[in-house]
Design a protein around this nucleic acid. Structure first.
Length: 884
RNA sequence: GCCGAAGUGGCGGAAUUGGUAGACGCGCUGGUCUCAAAAACCAGUGAGGGCAACCUCGUGUCGGUUCGAUCCCGACCUUCGGCACCA
């Protein structure tokens, strides 16, 4: 009986040794090539990390380890996105100051990450709520301000009398805040914006420079939303000019009415006395609806006639002006020309209010009759007198040229992206380094006075005043003007968290640098980030903002690079565990099914308690029961899915529990093996045992030549076994190298490691294991497993008599020739259906292969006197006889 | 409503991107060991048929292209994610 693999006996030891030897320290300047890999820095929550979070950290750690073994100087840092609403809410709920609680929560994250063997250079740990850090966030604010990219404008803000300023997600559709308070309202406040729209085109174009998932790029392009078209001026009876934006100037003759956003500044002027009460009432109702509800079209399209008319510049028609909430003030000019024949929303609106619909582009085969629906494609123009018969594009160009000549319009581009609202009326954020002086107005705080330190106060409960809680800290707010030294007040809005996360990747490079936000020389060595990994859920906003800031730095000459993240990948989400529930415990009511749960004891029990149930229910959770059913063990089962992991559902699985039961390496291996990195799937503890068995098998082979196992190789002659083992290990190194470098950890483990081990066992003997070849194979296996299971690898490395740390040893090489299979399998098909396989030598001649295939009894039986019409031959792959 | 992605055994997934469908792992079944159980090991495991060699069907559904389709094209269904009705 040989010693068994026992993670609890080895893992702690290696983590301690790594720490003592400080092996994850990164030299800012060294002779090695640089590799910078980074995860989205986390907000440290009081709940700690779950196994779901680790789907982000473990793959990047494995990649960092691989690149280190490839000879790179690897920068893999970690820090904390500690400012923001959740930390402030948590503090209010628990009565602990966020400056204290975030440190505590971050320390717990650090402990957990260390526990699962993630190797960060902790000397570079940063915290966005540290004045040392936010000094430079403020510095960047001033950089944007000086470059004309930060300005104060009017912005709408939700406000709850109890909770203060609300984020959009905190506003429920029933008109209450998410903590249940009623009386919330939307108010116009002076707020700070960044002019990201100035960078709209570059944010689209420069996506060509980076290796990002296509879907992510597409999302960013759609978010920026560039569309080309024309501005058209409609004159009203009162002489006012109404400018509208259209992407379809070719349909201008079909414009039969105008629609304005209810908030449009010309609405009061254009509304006739008769219509006034209706229009004002409509505007008031619209203001009470959140933008999200307005956007999702709850309740169908509505609108009101203003009583006024406007003149269509191309045909001199007088068309009515309406207001409707489907037109948004923030896009284009806040007004549209409505062409119901060729736009679906306009069509719907025209139908509802009985407005004229005139086709000006002829659909294919159109008989000139009424359209049953909007025809939105381009085509041949009709009912557009001078342009009839022209294709859309040419006619549209002529119409725009005509408008430009008469001064009634011009070519134009619209973006749907809006400027970035950065103001927060909250305590827990970086102060905005601006002072309001009675004489000089808005004055930036001089660089030498940074940071503007957030005052430490115990009471940061929201105020009724519609301003930040900072407003009431008089001795902080009252200050002197940097310019005239007269009395002045500090800006009391704070910066939203997206500001902190727009540059943190630079701070890691020189975290203690004091002459600027980062050391330019060091940044030139490390930027751009080589691998950036995070969830896809927040990527549009954060990634656009960070790219925008970086481009501002580029324009200011702070960096020679245009893009901060050259390669980006997403990790998938882990859902809570699925399970099967005995159908006897589910109350099935038609489509819906409701589990019978007593009181949230954690386990469903049959009413008579006679049998064990597979599914453990999270307490008080509403479970979704899938329509799938399955019969086994004499019972009927229904599939149950409980969705996302969350504390309120009580279904969060922590790494602590798993590490205690299986060890860190098992958890790491399982997280990497369970699915591709970007796949979303439910957590399940079942597979962990498989990783444990795999490590046990590896342990047995490397340390004991599989002594306690059946020695299948005994039947084989040593030279044969040796030859095969060499091929297997070369193939393994090849597969592992290819897979890990493309972040395909699941197939790296399945085929590169597990299958390899199975194959080795089928030829292994003690004699082989004790030979030079055997020892070399065991050494390579240990190196290959190191990025996945570093603790186990170190233990094997040491026990097989090696010096130093395996996690710092060079990655093994392979020989392409030795990795190749000895023979080739050629597939034989008849009419595309598999009938036989041939084992042949490499480089077999085509004629030979065809002859062998034709001699196959299975093929002869299938052809059976039929005529061979054709023979398809794919070298090294297949022979296919086409017969009839 | 719009945009994006995905549908493969009981489960997670694999398939050199048009050429052996189901690698690897879990689970399950049978066996060895044991007084017994667990663990470990060995064998089997898409469905149907056949004593067997084998045969038929099979990658959400229906069509199409092709010698050959999980992969390409068209229509549809379902699920997940995002949304700011974008003129």
């Amino acid at each position: 009986m040989v010693e068994r693999y026992a993670p609890e006996a080895i893992e702690e030891k290696w983590r301690r040794r790594w720490q003592e030897a400080d092996i994850y320290r990164t030299e800012t300047f060294s002779s090695k090539p640089a590799f910078y890999c980074l995860e989205f820095f986390p907000y440290p929550s009081g709940e700690g990390l779950s196994v779901g979070h680790l789907r982000n950290y473990i793959p990047v750690d494995a990649m960092a380890r691989y690149m280190r073994m490839r000879g790179y100087e690897v920068l893999h840092p970690m820090g904390w996105d500690a400012f923001g609403l959740p930390a402030e809410q948590d503090a209010i709920d628990k009565g602990i100051h966020p400056a204290v609680s975030t440190l505590k929560y971050a320390a717990n994250y650090k402990r957990q990450l260390t526990m699962v063997g993630c190797g960060y250079d902790w000397s570079r740990e940063i915290n966005s709520s540290d004045p040392e850090y936010y000094k430079w966030t403020q510095w960047f604010f001033l950089l944007l301000y000086k470059r004309g990219l930060a300005y104060r404008g009017e912005g709408m803000q939700w406000w709850c009398p109890t909770c203060g300023a609300l984020a959009n997600e905190e506003v429920l559709s029933d008109g209450t805040c998410w903590r249940g308070h009623s009386g919330i309202e939307q108010r116009v406040l002076k707020q700070w914006f960044f002019k990201i729209t100035d960078y709209a085109d570059r944010l689209i174009e420069d996506l060509d420079l980076v290796d990002w998932p296509d879907t992510t790029k597409r999302m960013q392009v759609n978010w920026v939303g560039r569309s080309e078209g024309a501005d058209v001026v409609f004159k009203t009876e009162s002489g006012a000019e109404l400018k509208v934006f259209t992407t379809r100037p070719d349909t201008l003759f079909g414009a039969t009415f105008i629609v304005l956003a209810p908030e449009h500044p010309l609405v009061p002027e254009l509304t006739t006395t008769k219509q006034r009460s209706q229009v004002e009432d409509y505007a008031r109702r619209t203001a009470a609806v959140s933008e999200i509800d307005r956007a999702s079209g709850v309740g169908g399209k509505t609108g009101v006639f203003t009583g006024s008319f406007a003149n269509n510049p191309v045909n001199d028609e007088q068309i009515p002006i309406w207001v409707s909430d489907y037109v948004l003030l923030s896009y284009g000019t806040g007004a549209i020309m409505s062409v119901p024949a060729h736009d679906e929303r306009d069509f719907e609106f025209a139908h509802k209010y009985d407005l004229p619909i005139r086709a000006v582009i002829a659909p294919d085969g159109w008989d000139g009759g009424k359209l049953a629906q909007a025809f939105t494609e381009s085509g041949i123009m009709v009912n557009s007198p001078p342009h009839d018969g022209l294709p859309s594009e040419e006619g549209g160009n002529r119409i725009v040229a005509e408008l430009e000549r008469t001064g009634r319009g011009a070519r134009s581009v619209a973006y749907r992206m809006r400027d970035w609202l950065i103001s927060r009326q909250r305590y827990w954020g970086s102060p905005i380094p601006i002072v309001h002086c009675e004489r000089c107005g808005e004055v930036p705080v001089p660089e030498s006075d940074l940071p503007v330190v957030l005052p430490h106060v115990e009471d940061f409960q929201p105020r009724q005043s519609h301003r930040s809680p900072l407003e009431s800290i008089e001795d902080w707010v009252n200050t002197t003007c940097p310019d005239c030294e007269g009395p002045a007040r500090r800006e009391t809005d704070t910066l939203g968290g997206f500001a902190c996360s727009s540059w943190y990747y630079l701070r890691f490079i020189s975290p203690h640098f004091s002459d600027g936000p980062f050391d330019a020389r060091a940044a030139e060595r490390w930027m751009p980030v080589d691998l950036y990994v995070g969830g896809s859920e927040h990527t549009v906003m954060h990634l656009l903002f960070a790219r925008f800031w970086f481009k501002v730095m580029y324009d200011a000459g702070l960096t020679p690079f245009k893009e901060p993240f050259s390669s980006l990948r997403h990790q998938g989400m882990l859902l809570a565990e699925d399970g099967w529930l005995n159908a006897a415990d589910a109350r099935i009511t038609g489509e819906a099914a409701v589990p019978r749960t007593a009181d949230g004891a954690g386990v469903f029990e049959k009413p008579d308690s006679s049998s064990r149930l597979i599914y453990k229910a999270p307490p008080k959770a509403e479970l979704e029961i899938k329509p799938e059913r399955h019969k086994s063990n004499g019972a009927e089962w229904v599939a149950v899915r409980s969705g996302k992991m969350s504390k309120s559902m009580g279904n969060v699985v922590t790494p602590d529990a798993i590490v205690e039961k299986y060890g860190a390496d098992c958890l790491r291996g399982y997280e990497l093996f369970m699915a591709p990195m970007d796949g979303t799937l439910p957590w399940s503890e079942n597979g962990l045992a498989g990783l444990q068995r795999f490590y046990q098998k590896l342990w047995d082979l490397v340390l004991f030549d599989g002594a306690d196992r059946q020695a299948a190789g005994d039947a084989m002659a040593l030279p044969d076994a040796r030859r095969q083992a060499v091929r297997v290990i070369n193939r393994a190194v090849k597969r592992c190298t290819e897979d890990i470098s493309q972040l395909r950890f699941n197939t790296m483990i399945a085929n590169g490691l597990m299958e390899t081990l199975n194959d080795l066992y089928s030829v292994w003997t003690t004699e082989l294991g004790q030979s030079d070849v055997g020892r070399e194979i065991k050494e390579k296996l240990t190196l290959l497993i190191a990025p996945v299971a570093p603790h186990l690898a170190e233990e094997l490395w040491e026990r097989t008599g090696h010096e130093g740390h395996v996690v710092l040893a060079p990655w093994p090489e392979f020989d392409e020739k030795l990795a190749a299979a000895e023979t080739l399998t050629i597939v034989v098909q008849v009419n595309g259906k598999l009938r036989d396989r041939l084992e042949v030598d490499h480089g077999i001649a085509e004629e030979m292969a065809k002859q062998l295939a034709l001699a196959s009894p299975a093929v002869i039986a299938q052809i059976d006197g039929k005529q061979i019409r054709r023979v398809v031959y794919v070298p090294g792959r297949l022979v296919n006889f086409v017969v009839s």
